[in-house]
């Protein structure tokens, strides 16, 4: 079971709710993914069309745990204020904390991130920080009171997969007891499976499903891949070798030459 902030989930896929071709496809994709945690956001609402209300009804009807994000925030103040607004709107103290550093890579500004995390934990939030694979930053986030870490696989929306498997493996080894969720940059199910095979607790993604030609089928594929990756990790994979090793026993082989 995925255990975060005292809540347990049988599914290891956290799915974003953005960029789907239609509300119906969004809803069916989430169902097929079997995800139990869905990320959401806040944006300006017009008193004329009230577009956000219809979206919120769709999410509420799914009866899942929502994880509001602070996407698009570049400063501590922006992120903290957005988190407070999200807590009121979504009625949850969970927050996916994003404090972005620059536009090309949407890389986290880890200095602002740690400070925002510290403030939000003091304000009673359960913070899911979107961070890099830097171990020292991770230590600082834990010291700030975060009980889960979400290192990036690759830049948001890039679909590049795990850019630095060595760093992620190191992070997994260094924090054996902290829930670690690979967040962002996943492109195809094998990327998610790779993260799970490395021992990560879960994977968070959005674009890889929403942007696929068939999001519903892709959502199902990711769920299967993550389950396969988890099973593989628990089954203790073999170590890679540089040279061949015969799998068929040589003992008893006939001399026929």
């Amino acid at each position: 079971m995925l255990d975060v902030y005292g809540e347990k989930f049988s599914n290891r896929l956290l799915l974003g709710s953005a960029q789907y071709p239609s509300p119906a496809i969004l809803s069916e994709s989430i169902k097929q993914s079997q995800s139990q945690i869905v990320t959401v956001s806040l944006r300006r609402e017009s008193g004329g069309d009230l577009a956000g209300q219809a979206f919120w009804q769709i999410i509420q009807d799914l009866k899942l745990k929502v994880l509001p994000n602070t996407a698009g925030c570049y400063t501590v103040k922006e992120a903290v204020t957005t988190a407070h607004m999200a807590r009121e709107v979504f009625n949850t103290d969970w927050v996916k904390l994003e404090v972005i550093g620059e536009e090309d890579t949407l890389q986290p500004n880890v200095f602002e991130l740690v400070e925002a995390a510290r403030i939000l934990v003091e304000d009673g939030f359960k913070v899911f920080p979107y961070t890099t694979d830097d171990l020292i930053v991770a230590e600082k986030l834990l010291q700030a009171g975060c009980e889960v870490l979400m290192p990036w696989g690759a830049p948001i929306g890039s679909g590049r997969g795990l850019n630095n498997p060595y760093a992620l493996k190191t992070m997994r080894s260094h924090f054996p007891d902290t829930p670690l969720i690979v967040d962002a940059g996943i492109g195809v199910p094998s990327h998610a499976s790779q993260a799970m095979e490395m021992g990560f607790d879960a994977v968070l993604l959005n674009t890889a499903v929403a942007g696929a030609g068939d999001p519903v089928a892709m959502a199902k594929a990711f769920n299967l891949a993550i389950e396969a990756g988890l099973l593989a990790f628990e089954a203790d994979p073999i170590d890679a070798r540089d040279m061949a090793e015969p799998s068929t026993p040589m003992m008893g082989k006939a001399f026929l030459s």
Binding site: E45, A51, G52, F55, W56, N69, A71, V89, L205, T207
Partner: peptide, 10 residues
Amino acid sequence: LEVLAPMQGG
């Protein structure tokens, strides 16, 4: 005045 509402997010 900023008025925000639920919206799709990743």
